[in-house]
């Protein structure tokens, strides 16, 4: 069973890896968007899927990362990819400051506070806060990233940058999921009080989850800024946060493969439905409802955690 799944994953990866060879620039760019949202949604998945915190303001951290990159790059001309960790740090730091006082709020109250946060960030950007965000015009003239002397410019070049980043993200987050930390998060998601009782400092863990998610979203903001070369507040409105929220839940909370599939569906379907012109979003909405009705826990919910004791014992026995 496990081997079969591995084969499927390998086939999908290879097809994806080769796809720029037989897709035109438009579809490659669709895949780029899917890739960006995959990474974003995976970072939200840590907060929403694993820690179970209702967070509907993820676009705020994404925006902070993108604006950090844009501002520093256009004023000091520091190469884009050097700013990758800086963008992450700014977003992570913001998450730490913002989340500290609100982390204890119960589900839906946290939801509205995070919505409030993303709106405050957007309004601040629109109103040209500190005179550095360029108001509603946004910031333009952002450089293209240069990787080992290769200037990344064309959609297919971005494709490999983005999906390379996505692969690293998937690997790291998979490790995180199966670490002590990941298990602790799942525990406090299922039962906050019991987790606290078992000696897990829940507020601390929730906060770390928040900061990791925000850090990652900030880094995606960096790549987004470099890809678009212009960023404006509209790209980071509340609706973007809702889209990310939908990706995680549609795919399956806490499931990496589910989230990836969710990103493909939420970003890809409106493109496929383009042939329906003005009715495309109507069909998309109906599709979402139908999907949730038929797969109530998301399309690919996480597999139950398995602890292969037999194997472990067997290994000990043979030793």
């Amino acid at each position: 069973m496990k081997d079969k799944r591995l084969v499927i994953y390998a086939v999908i990866s290879v097809v994806l890896l080769l796809s720029p060879l037989f897709l035109n620039a438009y579809w490659v760019d669709v895949l780029n968007n899917v890739g960006l949202y995959t990474i974003l949604a995976l970072s939200l998945n840590i907060i929403l899927g694993h820690a179970g915190l209702f967070h509907m303001g993820h676009a705020a951290f994404y925006a902070l990362g993108a604006y950090t990159t844009a501002i520093i790059n256009t004023t000091y001309h520091i190469p884009i990819l050097w700013l990758l960790p800086v963008s992450g740090l700014v977003a992570g730091l913001a998450a730490l400051v913002v989340a500290r006082p609100i982390i204890h709020l119960r589900g839906d109250y946290l939801l509205i506070v995070t919505i409030g946060f993303v709106e405050i960030v957007r309004i601040a950007l629109v109103n040209n806060v500190f005179g550095i965000t360029g108001g509603s015009n946004g910031i333009f003239g952002i450089n293209r990233p240069i990787l080992f002397g290769w200037k990344i410019n064309k959609p297919w070049e971005f494709f490999y940058l983005i999906w390379g980043f996505a692969a690293v993200t998937i690997f790291l987050f998979n490790r995180l999921e199966n670490s002590r930390f990941g298990r602790a998060l799942n525990f406090l998601r299922e039962d906050d009080v019991a987790a606290e009782g078992s000696g897990i400092n829940t507020a601390h863990y929730k906060l770390i989850a928040f900061v990791i998610g925000a850090f990652w979203a900030g880094m995606v903001g960096n790549i987004f800024a470099a890809k678009m070369t212009i960023i404006a507040p509209e790209s980071f409105n509340f609706w973007e946060s809702v889209v990310l929220f939908m990706i995680v839940l549609l795919g399956g909370r806490g499931s990496i493969r589910g989230v990836i599939l969710g990103a493909f569906l939420v970003l890809g379907l409106p493109e496929i439905f383009r042939q329906f012109a003005t009715a495309r979003m109507l069909i998309f909405g109906a599709f979402m409802v139908a999907m949730m009705i038929f797969r109530t826990e998301g399309i690919l919910p996480p597999l139950p955690r398995k602890y292969p004791i037999a194997k472990m014992l067997g290994r000990e026995g043979s030793a």
Binding site: V242, M246, L249, L250, A279, M281, G285, V289, M291, M292
Partner: peptide
């Protein structure tokens, strides 16, 4: 009977549907 966030996604889908309808 399912997780209450699932219904939230359904609600968001319905919202998109109504608005475009």
């Amino acid at each position: 009977q399912s997780h209450r966030l699932s219904a939230v996604v359904s609600a968001l889908g319905a919202s998109i549907f109504f608005q475009n309808a």
